[in-house]
Amino acid sequence: MLDKVKHVILVLSGKGGVGKSTVSTQLALALREAGLKVGLLDIDLCGPSVPYLLGLEGRDIYQCDEGWVPIYTDDSKSLAVMSIGFLLKNRNDPVIWRGPKKTMMIKQFLTDVKWDELDYLIIDTPPGTSDEHITVMECMREVRCDGAIIVTTPQGVALDDVRKEITFCKKTGIAILGIVENMSGFVCPHCTNCTNIFSSEGGVELAKMSGVPHLGTVPIDPRVSVLNGTTRSVLTELPDSGTAATFKQLVEKITA
């Protein structure tokens, strides 16, 4: 399984909608900017977002002798992507599966996709601590998994669930690379005052409390969501933004 993949990183959060997929895609794009070969696997089977975020909706997966060929974002083949979104006939089709079927699919994504040589494989997950997470955690025992990046927003109600995810990692022996605090304050484009819509500093405090590194803080920036649907990195498109600074740091920490 994943024999030619040098590093595997999980992107986790107990809470939904905090930006796991955005962090996963922008991290994959940032690692690619650093000249690395990157894979991105979306194991959110009921709500896959990666094809949309990278503008790859409607692409078809082909089979070769060695298995499924992932979708490459361009001819350089430096970013390979796999998601259940590519296997659905219609983008509105629901995937109504119980756990065992989801488990089978995830195992197939890890074993039957021709990932080839990769420097990094980023795995984007659904919220929670259930079937998908248990399966991927079990599979990670057989591969070189660097650990998990935990994404949260600063709100108490998100932190509650993220604390549970940290416990999951600790109990199951997944190393935690650190916490990214997302949606951390919005600068009004009219008056430039910053409002902490979803509170502030929650991720920093959680990192301190649970003794894991704080990897950075990402503000709410509508300019970043404009990049949705493309394979453009914040590093090249918005080099002066706080988001770009955080991802630059993140890549340095990960590849150090």
Binding site: K164, T167, K171
Partner: peptide
């Protein structure tokens, strides 16, 4: 405790 995680597969949920 709020840190307790429920690590359950489908049937237990």
């Amino acid at each position: 405790s709020p840190d307790d995680a429920i690590i359950w597969r489908g049937p237990k949920k």
